[in-house]
Design a protein around this nucleic acid. Sequence first.
DNA 1: ACAAAAGTGTTCGTCTTACACCCATGC
DNA 2: GCATGGGTGTAAGACGAACACTTTTGT
Lengths: 296, 296
Amino acid sequence: MPSSIAAELVAVIVSVDEESPRVLASGAPAALPHGPLEPQHRSLQAGLRAWTREREGVELGFVEQLYTFADVGRSGRKGRTVAISYLGLTRAQGESGWVDVYDLLPWEDARDGVPALASQLGETLVGWAGRDGERLERTEHAFGLGDWAWRPELVLQRYELLWEAGLVAEHGAGSTPSSSTAPATGPAMLHDHRRILATGLARLRSTIQYRPVIFELMPPDFTLGQLQATVEALAGQRVHKQNFRRTVQDQLGLVEPTGETDRSTGGRPAALYRFRSEVHAERRHVGTKFPRPRTR
Amino acid sequence: MPSSIAAELVAVIVSVDEESPRVLASGAPAALPHGPLEPQHRSLQAGLRAWTREREGVELGFVEQLYTFADVGRSGRKGRTVAISYLGLTRAQGESGWVDVYDLLPWEDARDGVPALASQLGETLVGWAGRDGERLERTEHAFGLGDWAWRPELVLQRYELLWEAGLVAEHGAGSTPSSSTAPATGPAMLHDHRRILATGLARLRSTIQYRPVIFELMPPDFTLGQLQATVEALAGQRVHKQNFRRTVQDQLGLVEPTGETDRSTGGRPAALYRFRSEVHAERRHVGTKFPRPRTR
DNA sequence: ACAAAAGTGTTCGTCTTACACCCATGC
DNA sequence: GCATGGGTGTAAGACGAACACTTTTGT
């Protein structure tokens, strides 16, 4: 007979502010929206949507299950708490409650090259790894050292290395990083919420490469420049402009021009596009592949 | 405060018998290994390994969380049961308890072309979809109809369509498929275990394309022909021989010749290879991409 | 000899990345 | 005029798929 266990939902709700990705979080230490499973909802996804609408006033577009965390001691409570985490996307950029993702994971924004903080952390981890070949290889792989290129989607691998090395703070469990030697790695979040956030960002960065979920984050009408800026904000990486435009337009039928233009861009007016809603969910597997500039 | 809920683990444990993939299952209706979360295990993965070793006598290699099922009524029990499902790979081909995956999902083996059963089911689903454009497009996409190619990894999409149309039996919930018109779609499994199996096969077929987990299923020494047969058994699809060999060998450092040969192949003796264990887990992201023959 | 499977060399075409360049607007 | 971002054509190259062919065994 199954054991009785405390179970909760934790949500990584993401929107984009043209410049940077934002996540719903509140309190001190910051906490992702979370709460118990409500028995009245037939499916978890439906429950999450209702719950986010009622409690946060946010209507979700794309929703995807992330991971179920159940390690003993993951919450402060004694005994085991199972957390089923979800990723949700919304274009509602409602006023308050949003936190810049890169304030919480400050080494993850590589739009202007790999940030100095990431390089410092990589070096620190190389020292931590010492003679341990596996640790060293994981570090070089995750942080783009040696022969490896920086790969934006390895968010979780980077976070887990930092956590193992005691370089990131987690509220409650574990010790504070030794602030003398180590660089500042951003604020702790409640329990393991920062790990859950890292899981969500990793998944999102992977997903936008092969499914056009990016449109869930855009306003109804947008320019290709805005679309590119949104992709770059999430990916934490620049993409090749000309090829990005082509890729999007060649995904025949995914977007269509509205006929209007946006003159506020500071240069030539940009044509506005909209996502073609006739495109059904399954057709959308074609994805928003984006060409990365060959850095290195 | 989190609600108290019944929680269990369900495992999709896979091995390959050169000819066909096998999964651990037992009983009537067949059930995947499952049981309550044991409070003594710190992490779920560790728990699953210990649990599989003790109860099934199987030592797992690769382990990965699949999905957490929590729909009301998914188990026979009243109220909600949360099932955290895992995929595990092993080379231990121990005697009993193994069931051929394609006995349970008989439309999924496309090694000799898309099976007649899959085509029949596709046609039946087209009828079921009727004027519903989204259903029709999902069906054509999942079953490789119209302009779409058959994609082996869409296991779950196919299963869910069949389930929605009432064409697969699930034990307890739902009705039996109307046996007069519909083709036979294999035996029911306990509760939603066949759906969980479909989730596992889908994940496995995706994973082998970009991570060399295939080696977890091979004996220590193997020929490239055996390796190819194993990939084909899982993928449910033939691959191009010459390019497969090259791809494997070009993944420099992934395999190395043992110097021995296997003369039992019926033709020219085949060189034996082994997986290079010096290759650490993180390096292994390079993957076992396999070239598919261009069918269509 | 011939069947059968192992193994090698090379061509062809597509898709990714990059480069070069023109266009339309505000200041 | 010139800075700024929008927008198009085309070439270099990597990679995937296919073809043609040789090698080594068992019967």
